[in-house]
Simulated assay, not measured.
Amino acid sequence: MQGQLATVFGASGFIGRNIVRELAARGVRVNAVCRDAEQAKFLKPMGAVGQVTPMRADVTDPAAVARAVAGADMVINLVGILYQSGRNTFDAVQATAPGTIAKAAADAGVRALVHVSAIGADADSRSAYARSKAAGEAAVRAAFPAATVLRPSIVFGANDSFFNRFAAMAQVMPFLPLIGGGANKFQPVYVDDVADAAIAALQRPEAAGKTYELGGPSTYTFRQLLELMLVEIRRRRPLVTVPFWLASLQAAVLELLPVPPLTRDQIELLKRDNVVAPGASTLADLGVDPTPLEIVLPTYLDAFRLGGRYAGGRAHA
C-alpha cells in the first residue's frame, strides 16, 4: 500500500480518524474528505508532511465526489448520520450518496472500495435508518460489485457516542433510563478493530464483493452495558425501565431540538438485537482478533469518575 492514494469519506469522524491513522502508518497518501476541511486539520499530523490532505466535498454532489476520488487507488466510505436534519436526510446521505461514491470510484478505475454500513441494515425494517443503510448497500453493489461491505455493531473507544454519552448522563442525572427494559443485545466492537478490518479488506483480494459483520468477542444486554459503564466510572445510579411507548412519546418532543438526544427512529432500532448473524463472515475472516470491551473501557471512561481521572479507587454514591 506504500505510496498509494486512498480517498476516505467521513475521515474526521470517530471511525474515520482511526482509519486515516492506520493508512498513514502504512505509507498511504490520504484524501481525507469531510464537511469542514478546516476543522479536520487535526488529521494532518497523523502522517508525514503532505501525506494527509483534508478536503471538503458534499457527498450528495456527484461532481464533488468525482473530484475527490480522481486518481485514487482505494476508496472508503464512512459517511452516516444518526438523525435527520435539513438536507441531511437518511435517504440523501445513507441511501443515495453511497451509490454516488461507488459509481465515481468505478468510473475512476479505483482498485478497491470499502463501504461501512451497520448491523441491522434491512430493507423491511420499521426504522428509516436501517432501511436507508440497506438501500445504500444495494446502491454500492450495483455500481461497484467488487466492493467490500462492513457492518459493525455499536463501536466503542475514546470519543465514542455510546459509553461517553451515558457516562456524561450519569454525572448529572440521579438515574439512567433503560428503554424497553434493557434486554436487547449488542456486540460492541473496538474502533481500532474496525479500522484494521477496513485495511484488511483493502489488502485481501478474497474480501472483494463480500459482506462482513463486525462484533466483539462477547454479547451484552443494554442493561449489562450500562452496568459495566457505571462500574468503570465508580458511580451508583439506578436503572429505571422506560417502556417503548413512553420513550417514543418523549422522543417525539426531543426530535424538535437541533441535536436530538433521542428520536423515535432510534427507539425502533432498540427493539431489535444488534449482534453478528449466525453464519456471517466476521472479523476473524479478515484476520482481526476482536478486542474485549473490558480491556478498553478503563482507558477512557475513568475521566468520568467523581473527582476526575486520578481520583481514589473508592466507589462513590
Rank of each mutant, 00 (worst) to 15 (best):
R236W: 09
A207R: 00
A95G: 10
A251H: 02
F90R: 09
Y212Q: 09
V191Y: 12
L269I: 14
N184K: 09
V155K: 02
V231W: 05
G13W: 00
V65C: 10
V93P: 03
M1W: 02
A106W: 04
F42S: 04
T60V: 05
L270K: 01
A195E: 00
V8T: 05
A123C: 00
P174M: 11
A106E: 11
N88D: 14
I295K: 15
Q187P: 06
V65D: 05
V49Q: 13
P258W: 09
R126W: 01
K271R: 15
R141N: 05
T211A: 15
L256T: 05
A105H: 11
V276H: 05
A195F: 10
A95N: 10
I101G: 07
V49C: 01
K133Y: 11
L254A: 15
G287L: 08
D193Y: 03
F162Y: 15
A134G: 09
A105Q: 12
D273P: 03
S132Q: 01
N18W: 08
A102C: 09
N184Y: 14
T282I: 08
D91T: 10
I267P: 05
I76H: 01
Q250L: 15
R141Y: 08
V52Q: 06
P238T: 04
L5V: 15
T219F: 00
R305D: 08
L226G: 02
A311D: 13
G27V: 09
I267D: 03
R204L: 14
L293Y: 12
D58Y: 05
Q39A: 13
L239Y: 03
L257H: 05
D107R: 12
S153W: 02
S153I: 03
A198I: 10
A183L: 07
L78F: 07
E232L: 00
A317N: 06
T89I: 09
D61T: 10
Q2R: 14
T211Q: 10
Q266T: 02
A142C: 08
S85M: 12
W245P: 00
N159Q: 14
A303W: 06
I233G: 06
V75C: 11
D107K: 13
R305A: 13
R264G: 15
S85T: 11
D124E: 13
A108E: 06
R126S: 10
T96F: 02
A37Q: 13
I199T: 07
K133L: 12
I119V: 15
G180T: 04
